[in-house]
Simulated scan of single mutants.
Amino acid sequence: SIIYVPNTLKALHAIARYRRLQRATEVVAVTGTNGKTTTKEMIAKVLEKRFRVLKSSGNLNNHVGLPLCLSQLNGEDFAVLEMGASQVGDIRQLCEIALPGTGVLTNIGPAHLEGFGSIEQVLKTKMEILDFVDRVVLNRDDHLLREALNWKEFHGKDVLTYGLQEGADIRAENILSGPEGLSFKVHVGGKVFSLRLRVHGRFNVYNALAATGVCKLFGCLDTVAEALEGFEGVPMRLEVKHLRDVTFLSDMYNANPASMEEALKELVAMKTQRAIAVLGDMLELGAYEEKAHRDLGEMVARLPLEVFIAVGERMRAAAEVVRSTVPERDVIV
Protein backbone atom coordinates (compact mmCIF):
# COMPACT_ATOMS: atom_id res chain seq x y z
CA SER A 1 0.00 0.00 0.00
CA ILE A 2 1.03 3.62 -0.48
CA ILE A 3 0.46 6.23 2.22
CA TYR A 4 0.46 9.89 1.20
CA VAL A 5 2.04 12.30 3.67
CA PRO A 6 2.75 16.01 3.21
CA ASN A 7 6.35 15.63 4.45
CA THR A 8 8.18 12.29 4.25
CA LEU A 9 10.95 13.27 6.66
CA LYS A 10 8.50 14.35 9.37
CA ALA A 11 6.58 11.12 8.80
CA LEU A 12 9.78 9.08 9.24
CA HIS A 13 10.53 10.91 12.49
CA ALA A 14 6.99 10.34 13.76
CA ILE A 15 7.09 6.61 12.94
CA ALA A 16 10.45 6.16 14.69
CA ARG A 17 9.34 8.10 17.77
CA TYR A 18 6.07 6.16 17.96
CA ARG A 19 7.90 2.86 17.71
CA ARG A 20 10.27 4.00 20.45
CA LEU A 21 7.39 5.01 22.74
CA GLN A 22 5.69 1.63 22.28
CA ARG A 23 8.70 -0.26 23.62
CA ALA A 24 10.53 -0.39 26.95
CA THR A 25 13.94 -0.47 25.25
CA GLU A 26 16.83 1.26 27.01
CA VAL A 27 18.36 3.71 24.52
CA VAL A 28 22.07 4.51 24.79
CA ALA A 29 23.06 7.55 22.70
CA VAL A 30 26.71 8.07 21.73
CA THR A 31 27.88 11.51 20.65
CA GLY A 32 31.07 13.55 20.48
CA THR A 33 33.51 14.76 17.83
CA ASN A 34 35.60 11.61 17.34
CA GLY A 35 35.22 7.94 18.18
CA LYS A 36 31.42 7.75 17.99
CA THR A 37 31.15 4.83 15.59
CA THR A 38 33.83 2.67 17.23
CA THR A 39 32.49 3.43 20.72
CA LYS A 40 28.96 2.55 19.59
CA GLU A 41 30.20 -0.74 18.16
CA MET A 42 32.13 -1.58 21.35
CA ILE A 43 29.12 -0.81 23.56
CA ALA A 44 26.88 -3.01 21.43
CA LYS A 45 29.49 -5.77 21.48
CA VAL A 46 29.66 -5.94 25.27
CA LEU A 47 25.91 -5.61 25.81
CA GLU A 48 25.17 -8.37 23.28
CA LYS A 49 26.79 -10.86 25.64
CA ARG A 50 23.77 -10.56 27.93
CA PHE A 51 21.01 -8.61 26.19
CA ARG A 52 19.21 -8.28 22.86
CA VAL A 53 20.67 -5.21 21.17
CA LEU A 54 19.77 -3.01 18.21
CA LYS A 55 22.55 -0.71 17.02
CA SER A 56 22.96 1.99 14.41
CA SER A 57 24.13 0.55 11.12
CA GLY A 58 27.54 1.89 10.14
CA ASN A 59 27.54 5.60 10.87
CA LEU A 60 23.86 6.28 10.10
CA ASN A 61 23.76 8.95 12.76
CA ASN A 62 21.74 11.86 11.35
CA HIS A 63 18.10 12.95 10.98
CA VAL A 64 17.54 10.22 8.37
CA GLY A 65 19.79 7.37 9.48
CA LEU A 66 18.83 7.39 13.15
CA PRO A 67 15.03 7.17 12.66
CA LEU A 68 15.52 4.49 10.00
CA CYS A 69 17.44 2.43 12.56
CA LEU A 70 14.98 3.12 15.37
CA SER A 71 12.07 2.07 13.17
CA GLN A 72 13.51 -1.46 13.28
CA LEU A 73 12.95 -1.83 17.04
CA ASN A 74 11.41 -5.22 17.70
CA GLY A 75 11.63 -6.21 21.35
CA GLU A 76 15.34 -5.51 21.94
CA ASP A 77 16.50 -4.73 25.47
CA PHE A 78 18.88 -2.01 24.29
CA ALA A 79 19.27 0.30 21.31
CA VAL A 80 22.77 1.76 20.94
CA LEU A 81 22.52 4.78 18.67
CA GLU A 82 25.18 7.08 17.28
CA MET A 83 24.21 10.76 17.14
CA GLY A 84 26.06 13.10 14.82
CA ALA A 85 25.66 16.85 14.43
CA SER A 86 26.76 19.58 12.03
CA GLN A 87 24.85 22.50 13.53
CA VAL A 88 23.22 23.64 16.76
CA GLY A 89 19.96 21.80 17.45
CA ASP A 90 20.88 18.55 15.69
CA ILE A 91 21.38 16.50 18.87
CA ARG A 92 18.16 17.84 20.37
CA GLN A 93 16.23 16.79 17.28
CA LEU A 94 17.66 13.27 17.40
CA CYS A 95 16.98 12.97 21.14
CA GLU A 96 13.37 14.03 20.67
CA ILE A 97 12.99 11.03 18.37
CA ALA A 98 15.03 8.44 20.28
CA LEU A 99 14.38 9.57 23.89
CA PRO A 100 17.67 8.17 25.26
CA GLY A 101 18.09 7.35 28.93
CA THR A 102 21.89 7.09 28.79
CA GLY A 103 24.30 9.42 27.02
CA VAL A 104 27.95 8.77 26.17
CA LEU A 105 30.14 11.81 25.44
CA THR A 106 33.45 10.87 23.78
CA ASN A 107 35.26 14.21 23.25
CA ILE A 108 34.87 17.73 21.87
CA GLY A 109 37.03 19.01 19.02
CA PRO A 110 37.07 21.25 15.92
CA ALA A 111 34.86 19.56 13.32
CA HIS A 112 31.99 20.77 11.10
CA LEU A 113 32.91 24.34 12.07
CA GLU A 114 31.25 25.64 8.91
CA GLY A 115 27.94 24.79 10.55
CA PHE A 116 28.84 25.38 14.19
CA GLY A 117 30.98 28.50 13.87
CA SER A 118 33.10 27.75 16.94
CA ILE A 119 34.20 24.90 19.17
CA GLU A 120 32.06 26.42 21.95
CA GLN A 121 29.01 25.80 19.79
CA VAL A 122 30.17 22.23 19.20
CA LEU A 123 30.20 21.71 22.97
CA LYS A 124 26.82 23.40 23.42
CA THR A 125 25.27 21.18 20.76
CA LYS A 126 26.63 17.93 22.16
CA MET A 127 25.36 18.96 25.59
CA GLU A 128 21.80 19.13 24.27
CA ILE A 129 21.70 15.45 25.17
CA LEU A 130 21.62 16.38 28.88
CA ASP A 131 18.01 17.56 28.59
CA PHE A 132 16.97 13.96 27.92
CA VAL A 133 19.23 11.47 29.70
CA ASP A 134 19.40 10.42 33.36
CA ARG A 135 22.78 8.68 33.09
CA VAL A 136 25.99 10.03 31.52
CA VAL A 137 29.28 8.33 30.66
CA LEU A 138 31.88 11.02 29.93
CA ASN A 139 35.54 11.33 28.94
CA ARG A 140 37.08 13.20 31.87
CA ASP A 141 40.43 13.64 30.09
CA ASP A 142 38.77 15.96 27.55
CA HIS A 143 39.27 19.39 29.12
CA LEU A 144 36.06 20.88 27.71
CA LEU A 145 33.95 17.99 29.00
CA ARG A 146 35.75 18.03 32.34
CA GLU A 147 35.01 21.74 32.78
CA ALA A 148 31.41 21.20 31.71
CA LEU A 149 30.88 18.83 34.65
CA ASN A 150 30.27 21.99 36.69
CA TRP A 151 27.27 22.94 34.56
CA LYS A 152 23.89 22.88 36.29
CA GLU A 153 22.63 20.53 33.56
CA PHE A 154 24.63 17.72 35.18
CA HIS A 155 22.97 18.16 38.57
CA GLY A 156 20.90 15.12 39.51
CA LYS A 157 22.42 12.93 36.78
CA ASP A 158 24.11 9.60 37.41
CA VAL A 159 27.55 10.47 35.97
CA LEU A 160 30.42 8.05 35.34
CA THR A 161 33.70 9.48 34.10
CA TYR A 162 36.49 7.64 32.30
CA GLY A 163 40.05 8.43 31.29
CA LEU A 164 43.73 7.81 31.89
CA GLN A 165 44.22 10.49 34.52
CA GLU A 166 43.63 10.28 38.26
CA GLY A 167 40.11 11.23 39.27
CA ALA A 168 38.25 9.25 36.62
CA ASP A 169 35.74 6.67 37.86
CA ILE A 170 36.98 4.23 35.23
CA ARG A 171 40.68 4.43 34.50
CA ALA A 172 43.22 2.64 32.30
CA GLU A 173 46.90 2.20 33.14
CA ASN A 174 49.92 0.16 32.01
CA ILE A 175 48.97 0.62 28.35
CA LEU A 176 51.09 -1.45 25.98
CA SER A 177 50.94 -1.35 22.20
CA GLY A 178 52.23 -4.12 19.97
CA PRO A 179 51.80 -5.66 16.51
CA GLU A 180 48.61 -7.44 17.61
CA GLY A 181 46.98 -4.44 19.27
CA LEU A 182 46.66 -2.99 22.76
CA SER A 183 46.67 -4.30 26.32
CA PHE A 184 46.05 -2.44 29.58
CA LYS A 185 44.62 -2.62 33.09
CA VAL A 186 41.17 -1.21 33.87
CA HIS A 187 40.30 0.16 37.32
CA VAL A 188 36.57 0.41 38.01
CA GLY A 189 34.54 0.31 41.21
CA GLY A 190 37.43 -0.99 43.30
CA LYS A 191 38.11 -3.80 40.85
CA VAL A 192 40.97 -4.26 38.41
CA PHE A 193 40.95 -6.41 35.28
CA SER A 194 43.11 -6.84 32.18
CA LEU A 195 41.85 -5.91 28.74
CA ARG A 196 43.26 -6.83 25.34
CA LEU A 197 42.15 -5.20 22.11
CA ARG A 198 42.86 -6.33 18.55
CA VAL A 199 42.88 -2.73 17.36
CA HIS A 200 45.49 0.01 17.41
CA GLY A 201 45.53 3.62 18.56
CA ARG A 202 45.60 5.01 22.07
CA PHE A 203 42.18 6.59 21.47
CA ASN A 204 40.71 3.08 21.32
CA VAL A 205 41.59 2.74 25.01
CA TYR A 206 39.14 5.60 25.61
CA ASN A 207 36.51 3.95 23.43
CA ALA A 208 36.85 0.73 25.41
CA LEU A 209 36.59 2.63 28.70
CA ALA A 210 33.34 4.22 27.52
CA ALA A 211 31.92 0.76 26.79
CA THR A 212 33.08 -0.35 30.23
CA GLY A 213 31.21 2.59 31.75
CA VAL A 214 27.94 1.57 30.11
CA CYS A 215 28.41 -1.98 31.39
CA LYS A 216 29.06 -0.63 34.87
CA LEU A 217 25.74 1.20 34.77
CA PHE A 218 23.83 -1.92 33.74
CA GLY A 219 25.60 -4.53 35.85
CA CYS A 220 27.43 -6.49 33.18
CA LEU A 221 31.11 -5.69 33.79
CA ASP A 222 31.95 -9.37 33.54
CA THR A 223 31.21 -9.31 29.79
CA VAL A 224 33.72 -6.59 28.90
CA ALA A 225 37.03 -8.46 28.63
CA GLU A 226 35.74 -11.39 26.57
CA ALA A 227 33.58 -9.25 24.29
CA LEU A 228 36.19 -6.62 23.46
CA GLU A 229 38.97 -9.13 22.95
CA GLY A 230 36.98 -10.31 19.94
CA PHE A 231 36.36 -6.80 18.61
CA GLU A 232 38.08 -6.32 15.24
CA GLY A 233 37.51 -2.63 14.69
CA VAL A 234 35.52 -0.61 12.16
CA PRO A 235 36.38 -0.37 8.44
CA MET A 236 38.43 2.68 7.43
CA ARG A 237 39.04 3.66 11.07
CA LEU A 238 42.76 3.15 11.64
CA GLU A 239 42.75 -0.25 9.95
CA VAL A 240 46.12 -1.99 9.78
CA LYS A 241 46.76 -3.82 6.50
CA HIS A 242 49.84 -5.62 5.19
CA LEU A 243 51.12 -6.07 1.65
CA ARG A 244 54.40 -7.99 1.48
CA ASP A 245 56.77 -6.04 3.72
CA VAL A 246 54.70 -2.82 3.73
CA THR A 247 52.26 -1.95 6.52
CA PHE A 248 49.37 0.36 5.66
CA LEU A 249 47.49 2.38 8.24
CA SER A 250 44.12 3.14 6.67
CA ASP A 251 42.15 5.92 8.36
CA MET A 252 40.13 7.18 5.41
CA TYR A 253 36.53 7.61 6.50
CA ASN A 254 36.68 11.23 7.64
CA ALA A 255 39.21 13.73 8.91
CA ASN A 256 39.45 16.60 11.35
CA PRO A 257 42.46 18.02 13.23
CA ALA A 258 42.11 15.70 16.24
CA SER A 259 41.69 12.50 14.21
CA MET A 260 44.63 13.47 11.96
CA GLU A 261 46.83 13.99 15.00
CA GLU A 262 45.95 10.59 16.45
CA ALA A 263 46.53 8.81 13.13
CA LEU A 264 49.95 10.44 12.72
CA LYS A 265 50.95 9.49 16.26
CA GLU A 266 50.06 5.88 15.56
CA LEU A 267 51.93 5.92 12.23
CA VAL A 268 55.09 7.02 14.03
CA ALA A 269 54.56 4.51 16.85
CA MET A 270 54.31 1.66 14.33
CA LYS A 271 57.29 2.79 12.24
CA THR A 272 60.06 0.23 11.78
CA GLN A 273 62.01 1.70 8.84
CA ARG A 274 60.45 4.42 6.67
CA ALA A 275 57.20 6.26 7.39
CA ILE A 276 55.21 7.87 4.58
CA ALA A 277 52.18 10.04 5.40
CA VAL A 278 49.55 10.51 2.68
CA LEU A 279 47.08 13.11 3.92
CA GLY A 280 44.02 14.58 2.22
CA ASP A 281 42.06 17.76 2.84
CA MET A 282 40.13 18.31 6.07
CA LEU A 283 36.72 19.70 5.13
CA GLU A 284 33.97 21.74 6.79
CA LEU A 285 36.33 23.72 9.03
CA GLY A 286 35.06 27.15 8.03
CA ALA A 287 37.27 30.09 8.99
CA TYR A 288 39.57 27.69 10.88
CA GLU A 289 40.44 25.83 7.66
CA GLU A 290 43.82 27.35 6.72
CA LYS A 291 45.09 27.50 10.31
CA ALA A 292 44.12 23.86 10.88
CA HIS A 293 46.08 22.73 7.83
CA ARG A 294 49.10 24.87 8.72
CA ASP A 295 49.03 23.52 12.30
CA LEU A 296 48.95 20.02 10.87
CA GLY A 297 51.96 20.90 8.73
CA GLU A 298 53.85 21.94 11.86
CA MET A 299 53.09 18.59 13.45
CA VAL A 300 54.19 16.69 10.34
CA ALA A 301 57.44 18.70 10.34
CA ARG A 302 58.16 17.68 13.95
CA LEU A 303 57.55 13.97 13.40
CA PRO A 304 60.18 11.50 12.09
CA LEU A 305 58.56 10.98 8.69
CA GLU A 306 60.56 10.32 5.54
CA VAL A 307 57.92 11.40 3.00
CA PHE A 308 54.83 13.62 3.17
CA ILE A 309 52.31 13.41 0.32
CA ALA A 310 49.73 16.21 0.44
CA VAL A 311 46.50 15.54 -1.47
CA GLY A 312 44.08 18.40 -2.23
CA GLU A 313 44.16 22.18 -2.42
CA ARG A 314 43.74 22.73 1.32
CA MET A 315 46.60 20.39 2.21
CA ARG A 316 48.97 22.59 0.19
CA ALA A 317 49.13 24.87 3.24
CA ALA A 318 50.49 21.98 5.31
CA ALA A 319 52.98 21.13 2.58
CA GLU A 320 54.28 24.72 2.53
CA VAL A 321 54.92 24.62 6.27
CA VAL A 322 56.78 21.32 6.04
CA ARG A 323 58.94 22.51 3.12
CA SER A 324 59.91 25.71 4.89
CA THR A 325 60.58 24.00 8.23
CA VAL A 326 62.31 20.81 7.06
CA PRO A 327 63.77 21.53 3.59
CA GLU A 328 65.39 18.08 3.39
CA ARG A 329 62.04 16.31 3.84
CA ASP A 330 60.51 14.75 0.70
CA VAL A 331 57.21 16.55 0.12
CA ILE A 332 54.94 15.67 -2.78
CA VAL A 333 51.86 17.75 -3.65
Rank of each mutant, 00 (worst) to 15 (best):
F248L: 10
A79S: 08
Q93P: 00
L149T: 06
R316D: 04
P110F: 02
L249H: 04
L279S: 10
L238V: 04
H112L: 07
L47K: 08
G286A: 06
F51R: 03
G297N: 13
E289Q: 15
F51A: 04
R146M: 01
I108K: 03
L149H: 08
S250E: 13
P100H: 11
G115I: 08
V240H: 02
T212P: 06
V46H: 05
G101H: 10
Y288T: 01
E229I: 00
D141I: 05
G163K: 03
G230M: 14
M83A: 01
F51K: 01
G230P: 14
T33M: 03
T106F: 13
R244E: 09
C95F: 10
E261I: 00
E76W: 11
M260F: 13
V80I: 07
S1W: 02
E114M: 09
R198I: 01
K185Q: 05
R52P: 00
F154D: 01
R202C: 11
N107A: 04
P110E: 15
N61F: 07
G219V: 07
A172W: 12
K36D: 02
V136L: 06
V234F: 10
A168R: 04
N62T: 14
G201I: 10
A287T: 14
L160T: 05
S71P: 01
L305H: 04
K157A: 01
I175Q: 06
A310P: 11
K157S: 02
C215E: 06
A318T: 03
N174C: 03
V224L: 03
Q273S: 15
T8C: 06
T37A: 04
Q121A: 12
A258C: 03
L105W: 06
I108Y: 08
R198M: 07
L21P: 00
L66K: 02
A44K: 12
E173F: 03
I15S: 00
N207R: 08
G201M: 12
S250I: 14
K124C: 05
R171K: 12
G58R: 15
V53E: 01
V224F: 03
L267K: 08
M299K: 13
E226M: 02
Y18L: 11
S56Y: 09
A258Q: 15
A211G: 11
N139K: 10
P257V: 04
S177Q: 08
L145W: 06
V268P: 07
R52I: 00
D142P: 04
L68N: 00
N174S: 12
F308A: 05
L182E: 10
V199Y: 13
A277G: 06
L176G: 08
N139A: 12
E229R: 15
N254M: 06
S86K: 13
A319T: 05
H242T: 14
W151A: 13
G280Q: 10
L176Q: 15
R140W: 13
V133E: 01
S1R: 09
G181L: 07
A318F: 08
M299L: 15
P304S: 07
D134Y: 09
L70E: 01
I129W: 05
V311R: 05
E166P: 01
L305M: 11
V333A: 05
A263Y: 14
P304Y: 06
Y4A: 15
R140M: 14
K36H: 11
L130Q: 08
E320N: 10
V80F: 09
A310K: 09
